[in-house]
Amino acid sequence: MATTYHSRSNSFPSQSHPAIESVEDHLCSLRADDSESTSVCSNLASLRNLHEGINDLIQMPSIQQTLSHENWINELLEGSLKLVDLCSLSREIVSLTKESVQDLESSIRRNKTETATSADVSAYVASRKKITKMVNKCIKNLKSFNNKSATDNELWRMMKEAESHDLSVLKSVLILLSGDNETSTKTSWSLLSKFTTQNRRVYSESVAEDLSSLNIQKSTKNMDSKNMLKQLKSSEMTIQEIEDGLEALFRSLVKTRVSLLNVLSH
């Protein structure tokens, strides 16, 4: 998931502090998730908690003093802006995905036929293609992130590691939601398996199965309406869970960015 940083510089407060310990604990938890694996939704919640801890850390006078005297705070701000934009776009994609699912559900119920009509499925497929195009463009833009360490300062390292976790989890969400063709569906299954523990395997595989119904093609126009509605409803519930996780993470990312801007303005 993310590059692990362990070294501690002399400029970082050596005195133990709850805010520092909190961020380190959250980072350690995310590193463990990389090897043990958890669900995407759980990782979104972990990221939210991490950024809440980072925000508390930035409020420390000693940290603010370090930030105000370092020339790399502008790079941290640039990274935070990209993360806010990426999370915002991810929320938009999830919202559009949910809307397309709900539109197809409504059409099927309104027509009251045994099978979904060709027009209904065609409209849904067109919407999915648009969403997949957005996802591909979004993932392509991830290459603009610079996760290389330019200093041995521990605060910098922690912030960049957090950024790396953010990118990894948000990318996994986007790939999972793309579902444009068999290749992307397989990628989603493979990627999701990295977030699956033994004791949560049933739940996580259920998430992938729920979202696999997004990959409805024109050839499935003769699918029984009841079965299609059941699949779409499962997808909608999972999408809602992801949407809630992204919304909470977005608020935390904005809060962290505001804290960094406040340090720069003082």
Results as ranks from 00 to 15, higher is better:
54 I>Q: 05
153 N>H: 04
188 S>I: 04
36 E>N: 11
142 L>P: 00
170 L>T: 06
96 L>K: 14
112 K>L: 12
212 S>W: 02
51 H>L: 02
10 N>G: 11
61 P>R: 05
62 S>C: 12
255 K>V: 03
32 A>M: 11
25 D>F: 10
159 M>T: 05
88 S>D: 12
202 V>A: 13
2 A>Q: 05
122 S>P: 01
224 D>E: 07
266 H>F: 11
42 S>Q: 15
203 Y>V: 09
213 S>V: 07
210 D>S: 15
180 D>K: 14
129 K>Y: 09
142 L>T: 12
53 G>V: 06
109 R>A: 06
154 E>L: 06
172 S>A: 14
243 E>Q: 13
116 A>S: 15
105 E>A: 03
149 S>V: 00
169 V>K: 07
159 M>C: 15
61 P>Q: 04
214 L>V: 03
8 R>G: 01
121 V>G: 03
124 Y>S: 01
177 L>I: 15
145 F>Y: 07
172 S>I: 10
105 E>Q: 15
249 L>W: 04
206 S>Y: 08
252 S>L: 03
263 V>P: 02
211 L>D: 02
199 N>I: 06
27 L>T: 04
171 K>I: 09
236 E>C: 05
261 L>T: 06
150 A>E: 02
109 R>E: 14
75 E>T: 05
41 C>R: 10
194 K>V: 05
248 A>C: 08
36 E>V: 15
212 S>M: 08
161 E>D: 06
222 N>K: 13
194 K>P: 00
59 Q>S: 11
61 P>A: 03
189 W>V: 05
15 Q>E: 15
214 L>Q: 02
187 T>H: 12
124 Y>D: 00
244 D>K: 14
263 V>L: 06
225 S>C: 04
55 N>R: 10
137 K>W: 04
9 S>F: 09
204 S>P: 05
61 P>M: 05
154 E>H: 12
259 S>A: 15
222 N>H: 14
182 E>D: 13
226 K>I: 11
142 L>F: 09
248 A>M: 10
138 C>Y: 03
54 I>W: 00
126 A>E: 14
172 S>Y: 12
104 L>A: 01
169 V>L: 09
180 D>S: 14
18 P>I: 10
230 K>E: 13
155 L>N: 00
215 N>P: 01
173 V>W: 04
11 S>K: 12
208 A>S: 13
218 K>T: 11
157 R>D: 00
194 K>M: 12
30 L>I: 15
118 S>Y: 14
166 D>L: 07
162 A>F: 02
159 M>Q: 06
191 L>A: 11
230 K>S: 14
155 L>D: 00
114 E>I: 11
175 I>L: 14
219 S>Q: 12
60 M>R: 15
37 S>M: 03
261 L>Y: 07
146 N>Y: 05
214 L>P: 01
204 S>E: 12
3 T>D: 08
24 E>L: 10
158 M>P: 01
68 S>H: 10
203 Y>W: 09
196 T>Y: 03
